[in-house]
């Protein structure tokens, strides 16, 4: 495999092209990683706008028709609807785990099963999230790849 990185200072948008004989699991993983790394979300906190990187976001939560992004320490309001985010982040490490929550699997430290087919997830920051029964199957499927 050859890796070539060309630095072009006046290029308008970064372009990544992968040339391969066929798209296999590894190529898909690389594609997903690049997508995750380059998708940014605009968030607002106290009236100031911030560019949020997906890698830093723990989860998105919808509260009273507003959607918030949570990183390790702060909460940002984002302009997307939860369903739009679910569609946008389908091929990333994010997955909807409750009617109002989209969770970043990479931020989960450990999981354990609960009653009624629900799953409890402890995040890296020790916060606890519940994966409801309706979304538990999709969650397990995503973990299995």
């Amino acid at each position: 495999m050859k890796l070539q990185i060309d630095e072009i200072p006046n290029l308008e948008e970064t372009e990544i092209i992968i040339r391969c004989r066929e798209v296999d699991d590894r190529i898909n993983r690389i594609g997903n990683y690049i997508r995750t790394s380059y998708i940014t979300i605009n968030g607002k906190d106290n009236g100031e706008s911030y560019v949020l990187y997906l890698d830093d976001i723990y989860y998105f939560e919808a509260v009273d028709n507003k959607v918030f992004a949570y990183d390790e320490h702060k909460v940002y309001e984002v302009s997307y609807k939860l369903q739009e985010l679910a569609d946008l982040l389908r091929k990333t490490s994010f997955i909807q785990v409750a009617r109002t929550v989209i969770l970043n699997i990479n931020k989960i430290e450990k999981v354990s099963t609960l009653v009624n087919g629900r799953i409890s997830a402890v995040l890296i920051n020790k916060e606890k999230m519940i994966i409801t029964r309706a979304y538990a199957h999709a969650f397990k499927q995503k973990l299995n790849g």
Binding site: T113, L143, G145
Partner: peptide
């Protein structure tokens, strides 16, 4: 049974993270 299920779930989580990075 619970330990077995949780162990398998956490192994899958670990594998997912390794695949994703």
């Amino acid at each position: 049974k619970l330990r077995k299920v949780n162990k398998s779930l956490n192994e899958n989580l670990k594998n997912f993270k390794e695949r994703d990075h």
